[in-house]
Design a binder for these strands. Structure first.
Length: 360
DNA sequence: AAGTCGGGGCC
DNA sequence: GGCCCAGACTT
């Protein structure tokens, strides 16, 4: 523990509190992002969708997904009424697929209990699946201008530096302290702009590496800047060893050229997505094949392995390709296992590495 | 408090 | 290659 580390008790001078929001808003008017897709029009549904997509995902990545999603499902009731496969297909490639399932479940609950609209209330929003405290605050402030603090990755980074707070921001004790600071800086007006301004500052100036402090509207009061500690804040997440896992996947085609695909279970990795039949090892792969299919397993062509990295483990997929296969009549084509033609791929939610393999 | 959940951007 | 990103949820 270093001497500069702050305790949980904080006190903010009123002048400094005012300076934070005032300077940030003045900077935002000239230098903020005013042309993001969800800002025009800035409806509650579009703000909500953008906030969910932006969880752990950069703006640049989200934009094309957002445009495609709102074009297909332009309103909350449309999302609620859509087929789950359509929602998953629209999300396919974005990752963290629980976000998509929670999004639709929340939409359906809004139709049932909130007259088809997003509730304008922090606790009601937090009670919906996929919406936590920060996302609820971001929705309320941007959609209606309500006065709530957010605390996302951008704000955490800015506040850790501005107040010189050490310790990984994901730790509950540090996070609690950051919430206190975030609440203390709130302006009395312009909440939508203020919320966007914080994110813009974190995304464009107060970046993780090589921040542009000389351009920062908060540089005069930034403690880390004054103390020369900007580069070491926020404190990095403690490292962890990620395990390496393996799996065999079967790329099977029938005489029509259709590919056999399987829907994954509703929980766990790639939940509810369509993927190639997968087994833990070669023996299990062969056993499944011989139980379900008619064909010569030993004639399969081994394709180069595919390496895929998750946050908490690495996966090496070993594909086997085999053509001219038929399903055993006792197994049959059903809701969770079916032959898919190439022109149907776009309509199915598939893990990114599987889609890449099939479309290569 | 720690683990589970993707995929891509960027160094 | 590693680390992180407009986090939430489960255990």
């Amino acid at each position: 523990m270093t001497s500069h580390h702050k305790t949980a008790t904080v006190s903010i001078a009123p002048a400094e509190t005012e300076a934070f929001a005032t300077r940030l808003l003045r900077w935002f008017d000239r230098n903020g992002r005013h042309d993001l897709p969800w800002q025009h029009p800035r409806t509650p549904y579009r703000v909500w969708l953008s906030e969910i997509m932006l969880q752990q995902t950069q703006v640049k990545t989200v934009i094309p997904y957002f445009e495609r999603f709102v074009a297909a499902l332009p309103t909350l009731p449309a999302l609620a009424a859509a087929a789950q496969d359509e929602v998953m297909a629209l999300w396919s490639g974005l990752g963290y697929y629980a976000r998509a399932r929670n999004l639709q479940a929340a939409a359906q609950r809004c139709v049932e209990r909130h007259d088809g609209e997003l509730p304008r209330d922090l606790n009601a929003l937090t009670g919906l699946p996929g919406i936590g405290r920060s996302t609820a605050a971001a929705i309320l402030s941007q959609a209606w201008g309500d006065r709530h603090a957010i605390l996302d990755g951008n704000v955490k980074r800015v506040l850790c530096r501005y107040h010189d707070i050490a310790g990984h921001p994901g730790l509950p004790a540090v996070e609690k302290q950051l919430w206190t600071h975030a609440e203390s800086h709130l302006p009395d007006a312009r909440m939508a702009d203020y919320t966007q301004a914080q994110m813009d500052l974190g995304a464009t100036l107060c970046t993780r590496s090589d921040p542009a402090c000389v351009l920062c509207p908060l540089q005069d009061n930034c403690v880390a800047r004054r103390e020369g500690r900007v580069a070491e804040l926020p404190t990095a997440r403690p490292g962890k060893v990620v395990p390496q896992k393996h799996a065999c996947i079967l790329w099977l085609e029938n005489s029509d050229g259709a590919v056999l695909m399987q829907r994954r279970p509703p929980t766990g990795i790639w939940a509810s997505l369509w993927t190639l039949p997968q087994a833990e090892d070669a023996a299990a792969s062969r056993a499944w094949f011989e139980r379900a299919l008619i064909g010569d397993y030993d004639a399969a062509e081994a394709l180069p392995p595919i390496d895929h990295a998750f946050s908490h483990y690495r996966l090496r997929l070993h594909p086997l390709r085999l053509r001219g296969i038929a399903l055993d009549r006792r197994v049959g084509d059903n809701d969770d296992l079916r032959w898919v033609m190439r022109d149907e791929f776009a309509g199915l939610g598939m893990p990114a590495p599987i889609r890449k393999l099939l479309e290569s």
